[in-house]
Design a protein around this nucleic acid. Sequence first.
DNA 1: CTCCTAATTGCAACTAGTTGCAATTAGGAG
DNA 2: CTCCTAATTGCAACTAGTTGCAATTAGGAG
Lengths: 145, 145
Amino acid sequence: MSHHHTALLANLRDQGRRLTPQREIVLSVICASAGHISAEEILTRVRARYPYLNKSAVYRTLDLLAQLNLVNVTDFGEGRALYEMHRDPHHHHLICRKCRKITNTDASIFESIEKLLRAEYGFHADLDHFAIWGLCRKCARNRKT
Amino acid sequence: MSHHHTALLANLRDQGRRLTPQREIVLSVICASAGHISAEEILTRVRARYPYLNKSAVYRTLDLLAQLNLVNVTDFGEGRALYEMHRDPHHHHLICRKCRKITNTDASIFESIEKLLRAEYGFHADLDHFAIWGLCRKCARNRKT
DNA sequence: CTCCTAATTGCAACTAGTTGCAATTAGGAG
DNA sequence: CTCCTAATTGCAACTAGTTGCAATTAGGAG
Ligand SMILES: [Mn+2]
Ligand SMILES: [Mn+2]
Ligand SMILES: [Zn+2]
Ligand SMILES: [Zn+2]
């Protein structure tokens, strides 16, 4: 049993919830994927191992894993959610709303804001995977600025 | 013709796009709404004035307005997008992933990051309406922290 | 004012994801 | 190991939003 299954199990037990084979398979598929992966692709890979697993169970598991903060969910403007394991070091994505170019940054840029939100609002922000929209250098220049 | 219609017209003309009655109606419905409003509710209000306007036109207009940055689009975890005019002063929302409580903050918290992204990546971030997930004070305390 | 054409709409069919409920089962009690 | 029950799954029906394409039209040219 991997490290992530242990984390899942601990989280579930706290809430009187159960570790089912379906949940284990979904989690391990996400663990085995390098980057961002869609629900549809997760379902495909899950079914390679367990052909009759229902899509409702996959979607419900994805919601659960997101709520437990084991995976992050991000919309990169494709009109569907992409899932990724929470891994260190954290990173963020800058997305150009004009040309859709994506640039990565590291997590440190949000450190000061995390402290501010905690100090001022008592809010423990999940700032470990942001999609930040805007204009890239090239597109901002073309706006005759 | 309102200030917002003028802004829309200018944006459209630049790109060889057109100001249609459908687009005007959708924009004015969002302008007339105080806070966040769903696409479904926009469609309902649009049809109060123009009963046969097609939902595709509404969704396509919403995409367009978002791309032109005249409205912001945010998912507050309800599984659907909410739309709001870009208005000053800007604000952000802190959402607890456990109890779904929503707290507002003002826009100034992101000023330093906006400068950093511009200086370091040449990226002009749209940081005027963020939904930040995390744990509120109460829920963070209950996690036996 | 009329004509023209590329942009846009309306439509119908489709896709991704959600929901309510009966059947199944994880996991605790004995 | 067996029983029990609340949590979960599978299913089928549903909803929100998307897409391709023919019909319409905004807005520019003459
Ligand atoms: Mn990522
Ligand atoms: Mn808002
Ligand atoms: Zn760009
Ligand atoms: Zn909370």
